[in-house]
């Protein structure tokens, strides 16, 4: 499909918003790959494909987070670029995943580069603050997002520069078995996000609820929101039981606190 200049500008602006929000305001982070795919899809005129690409990337990365600043594949960028390729080449969501996943992984390198290069801005800010020029220090800090913006804008602009024709040519060059393999992979990949989450959570303690949730869908075909409602009921019960236990446990420690305020040495506790 032909992309107008206005659409290109809108995708660039949208990517800039996504990458800014991702680190700071963080209102579009949760469910972010679906939102990224939908946004780019809407701009390019095919929101359904965008949703489909975003959904796969969201599910495969559910538990993946950059905790403590570890560099992980940038699935947001994958959702944006994957949707662009899927819509522009007209080949659909499977192909978007095929392109989006490797691009997410490649973006690790970009991420490391950005996180290293931004050190420069903080050094500049600190030097300005040491000279007593606080306004300049603040400006250097705000400018510290330059490389973060570029991390998204450069790949997006590059893809537009490559253009729909070249993409279609590439799509036709990719063998059928490769696309089929990736289409199957797209169905299986949510397993990774799910397993990472289970690693993160206290799965051993909560195993009965895992089975419960699985069976509700597998046998009773309860929709996802319905499972969440069942889960909420279970969570309330657990919360009540746990806070009762915590209260019982808190009584002795509360008296310790009272003792320490009147000056009793409680080092041995």
């Amino acid at each position: 499909m032909e992309v107008t200049f206005l659409q290109m500008a809108a995708v660039v602006l949208f990517s800039a918003i996504i990458v800014y929000d991702q680190m700071n305001t963080q209102l579009l982070v949760i469910g972010g790959k679906v939102i990224a795919g939908l946004g780019v899809g809407l701009i390019l005129g095919d929101p359904v494909t965008g949703l489909a690409v975003g959904a796969v990337l969201e599910l495969m990365s559910l538990g993946v987070g950059a905790y403590g600043g570890a560099s992980v594949p940038d699935y947001w960028l994958g959702a944006i670029t994957g949707t662009m390729v899927a819509v522009m080449s007209g080949k659909g969501a499977d192909f978007g995943v095929l392109v989006g996943v490797p691009l997410s992984v490649l973006a690790i390198q970009l991420d490391v580069l950005v996180r290293t290069a931004t050190t420069f801005f903080v050094h500049k800010a600190k030097a300005a603050a040491d000279r007593g020029n606080v306004a300049v220090a603040y400006r250097w800090l705000w400018n510290g997002y330059t490389f973060w913006f570029l991390k998204y804008i450069v790949p997006v602009v590059l893809l537009f520069a490559i253009g729909a024709d070249a993409m279609s040519a590439f799509v036709n060059w990719v063998p059928q078995w490769f696309i089929a393999g990736f289409s199957i992979a797209g169905g299986l990949l949510p397993v990774v996000g799910i397993a990472i989450l289970l690693r993160f959570m206290n799965t051993k303690a909560h195993l009965p609820f895992l089975i419960f949730g699985f069976a509700l869908v597998a046998y009773l075909k309860v929709p996802m929101v319905g499972v969440a409602v069942f889960g909420l009921a279970a969570a309330i019960l657990v919360f009540r039981a746990a806070s009762k236990q915590a209260q019982a446990a808190a009584v002795p420690s509360a008296s310790n606190a009272a003792l320490s305020t009147v000056g009793v040495n409680n080092d041995e506790l």
Binding site: L59, L62, P190, I194, L197, L198, M201, N202, T203, H206, L207, F209, L210, I211, F212, G213, F214, A215, L216, V217, V222, M224, V227, A228, F230, G231, L232, A234, A235, V238
Partner: peptide, 10 residues
């Protein structure tokens, strides 16, 4: 608990 149940459903 809620999270694990949703994961099971997923």
């Amino acid at each position: 608990v809620l999270g694990v149940m949703v994961i099971g459903a997923l």
